[in-house]
Amino acid sequence: MLKDITIGQFFPGQSSIHRLDPRVKIIITFVFIVIIFFVRSFIGYGMILAYMALAVILSGVPVRYMLKGLKPLLFIIALTFFINIFFTSGEKVIFKFWFFTLTQEGLLQGVFMGLRLIFLVAGTSLLTLTTSPIALTDGIEHLLQPLKIFRFPVHELAMMMTIALRFIPTLLEETDKIMKAQMARGADFESGNLFQRAKALVPLLVPLFISAFRRADELAMAMESRCYRGGENRTRMKIPKTASRDYIALAVTFLLVLGILLNSYL
């Protein structure tokens, strides 16, 4: 059941999207997120869809796999959709029932909000699906370099992120194992009311925390015994390089931004 989580999961591959410079990919994703909020028409969403489809096709990630990542958010998307439909005031009333009023403006607003959420999630998950966690934190570290002027611990932050990401699968595996061990002793995680279920988590969480602390301790020890010191004078094995495909990607993204701004404000 824990293995169904796809948000933040890496989908290994060798496509041109996978090989983009992580810094460029992060910038593009950021621009993409911002520009979604400027879209005001179906033509705009058409452009977004075309851009997204191009990226997904190039990345080689199966569409089915992308949609699976959207499933846990279905409820939130539906909720946003309905709230916007019924609580947006407008002129052209389509129908009225009790205190619900459906207006054309509301319907449009609901559809736009729903689409906005879907593209936000799809766009960001495409980033994590095509970028390995290590490359991602490397990219973030590089992009945050300027903050060093303010004595912001960029390297330490990146290291913390790398470690945290590295331990997600380990902890999931551990959770799975402890869960099974307690189920073998008759524990029941799946039935009962909310209170009973919360109580049933104690035999899972206590060993999990203990093992997380033990692992943290061991990792700290292992890093120290290899003389780890963050930051200053530390060289890296992989130095990111921008290639022509990075500039093409930036150019396409620029065209999208231009198109949407023209569509929304002209």
Binding site: K177, I178, K180, A181, Q182, P203, V206, P207, I210, S211
Partner: peptide
């Protein structure tokens, strides 16, 4: 079923 390193399940 006794898992590997079963002492990790004690709580």
């Amino acid at each position: 079923l006794v898992f590997q390193y079963p002492e990790h399940q004690l709580f």
